[in-house]
Amino acid sequence: MSFLLLAEQLLNGLQFGVMLFLTAAGLTLVFGVMGLINLAHGSLFMIGAFAAAAVAAASGSFLLAVMASIAAAAAAGVLVEVLVIRRLYARDHLDQVLATFALILIFSEGTRWLFGSFPLFLDIPDYLSGPVTLPGGIDYPLYRLTIIGVGLLVALGLFLLIARTRLGIQIRAGESDREMIAALGVNISRLYTVVFALGAALAGLAGALIGAIQSVQVGMGEPVLILAFVVIVIGGIGSIKGALAGSILVGLTDTLGRALLPGLFGLFMEPADATSIGSALSSMLIYILMAVVLIVRPTGLYGARA
């Protein structure tokens, strides 16, 4: 494998990682602050993508579509938090899993009822389409570079929000001691709604950005949800920094595994066997990574809680 191809694959891994970060950040935030396992996070991702596709089809503007995705997912998040999730904070995790799983089914069939059974069209806008040539001669799609940029901006924004703002202080306080922050006069129920809406908005943004290069269809959120859980378990549940590190680690492992393993096995195996064993192993790689991280650091890379 040439150096250029390897560099391109590294870039692909980074981009995949950043894409994962956008979905994992909201999930880890909600779990960290409220202790809630939200399986319906993938549905919020789907809502973002569908809202973007609908608005893009009506208006023709991608920017408007992205804004609509954020608004729609955040609104759905507020609605869900007030109607359903609020009743679950005091319950144990099994109840939360059951209720949010029910939400997945409701959102999926609701979306199918509204938009039909066939995938929707959402495309990259002209000004972001096509490859650009990077220094070193790599042809790399501009849109993927944009995703890397947006993802890193979101990461920076979240760090600033949590480290520098009053809301951030409340979020951190909520993470470490819920009862105390309520006793100090912070409106904890409003804080929870805000955090949940923020998490939902991030998922919606991810849905719109990723929907443009993937298929906007019912059920698109579930594979993403599983990967997001892997990421936050590796990174340490509740930690934004962990989510970023975990995403990039998972992105690089998955991409490089897919790129390198079949070739590696090809050195000492029949090509057909190498392809199938290499592919099988590369799809397991991130789960192996997760297991290793959990053995070495049971709370994840940046996890604080025992």
């Binding site: 494998m1 694959q9 891994g13 990723i210 592919s279």
Partner: peptide, 21 residues
């Protein structure tokens, strides 16, 4: 070249790079 991808895979950046090369 011959590749088997993950069932349900949604991102093909890595495969596309290999096709190009």
């Amino acid at each position: 070249g011959e590749l088997l991808t993950k069932l349900g895979q949604t991102d093909y950046a890595s495969e596309l790079a290999q096709i190009r090369a």
